[in-house]
Nucleic acid binder design. Structure first.
Lengths: 233, 233
DNA sequence: AAATAAATTTAGACAAATCTAAAATATTCC
DNA sequence: GGAATATTTTAGATTTGTCTAAATTTATTT
């Protein structure tokens, strides 16, 4: 595996993350994500295309190639292992780890990362609950669903949180929700889409729509797959 | 404290190390140390002079300013803490740590480094026996002397080794010499400047001039200061 | 299906860090 | 002390990654 510049790595990572949600990634999306200009994105896309890391036709958006995906998973592995290290060993709080890991992830010494992985006990998820790719680039795909889509009266475990800010951390700590918490929805309020939640034997409490949309859970019961109509055409 | 580019940091660090030995540092010395061209060094020196990190007059060589020294000590602190981490926690061997630390040292998040320091138990020296500056930039100055200058029959502790290669590691392991080993010189041979060494109750053995010159020791007895004539004029 | 708006790309410029080749300065040696 | 040599600096080019402004392509509206 070749080496890439910090800048190239940031583009690859951004595209990987943007790809998760939708189909092909657009110039503007990447520019917004990386706080750079669309023209700079175009320049870099040409470079990454030449290096065969992505598929790209002018004006058509881009998709990582399989090689590009491998590279992205390597970067994400490094990022998440460092996040785990920072939280677990150095006692950083949840909201602080991301920024530091942004720098550490670009140190791309394979032996370093594999030994770090071993030192940490081969953790499966980072402090936000996101899965850590293994040394071969394999990543766990879990059955996470957004809490706002969990059916009522269905016990589930909190498995990740998609916002990493100190503000959400403050709220989650106040409500004593953390990764692994078991909860279920008792009731949904139509007015503001807030949810009444039950955790263990504690009294029920409500959480806002915004919060419910950032929490992801794994159901403890098999869920009936709700069809979302046609998949991507 | 401002931030500096990886390249600027490498120049600052090189000058700091080269300064240790002699007086002002020359363009060629830095170029050689950093495997770059003299013209590149001159360019960077102008930049660092403007940033007040060093004193420099064309053709006169350079010296770090007190600000530049502070920056250098920060880089060295990061480098040596990471080396300690790699050796102690990730079980890297002695000769492997330097290269990886060369990359990690440029991640300059103060909180990261101070928490790493704490996690490691505030180590005083890195795996080669070189002192680690503390969070205020204070560095221990020890009374190390080169083993080749230790008087005969004077017990001393091995306190650092100035070569970090796998070749010297192999030799030191074979002779069972490590940091903290107590030894004394029994006899010197004029022919090749080899030394007969005694470690504990083991049988004496000899070491070459080359090896003696890379090992530094702290005498367990106060040594008479040998005058070296005039200091720097 | 034009006209307008939005997104994307191109063209050209710039800063950082490097290089080569030539010029300037210091040093060494007879 | 002056010629030869070594060192250092300058001048100008190159690469990477960025930018602005203008041109091009695609999408949206009426």
């Amino acid at each position: 595996m070749l080496n890439f510049s910090t800048s190239e790595e940031n583009y690859i990572k951004a595209i990987f993350h943007l790809q998760q949600d939708v189909g092909p990634v657009t110039t503007n999306e990447v520019a917004h994500e990386l706080k750079t200009r669309p023209a700079s994105v175009t320049d870099m896309m040409k470079k990454l295309k030449i290096k065969k890391l992505l598929h790209y036709q002018p004006y058509q958006g881009f998709r990582l190639s399989s090689e590009g995906t491998k590279v992205a998973l390597g970067i994400i592995r490094r990022h998440r292992l460092w996040e785990f290290f920072l939280a677990e060993k150095l006692k950083f709080t949840w909201d602080e780890v991301h920024e530091v890991a942004e720098d550490l992830e670009h140190v791309s010494n394979k032996k370093l990362i594999d030994k770090l992985d071993e030192f940490l006990g081969f953790p499966r998820v980072d402090p936000h609950g996101d899965p850590i790719p293994d040394m071969h680039g394999k990543i766990e795909i879990s059955n996470k669903i957004c809490l706002s889509k969990l059916p009522n009266h269905t016990p589930a475990l909190v498995s990740s949180v998609s916002d990493h800010s100190s503000e959400i951390l403050e709220l989650l700590e106040h409500k004593k929700i953390s990764l692994g918490s078991k909860l279920e929805i008792k009731r949904r309020f139509e007015f503001d889409n807030s949810l009444e939640i039950r955790m263990g034997r504690q009294p029920a409490f409500t959480i806002s729509q915004q919060l419910a949309e950032t929490i992801f859970v794994t159901s403890l019961l098999p869920l009936i797959q709700i069809s979302e109509g046609k998949r991507n055409k």
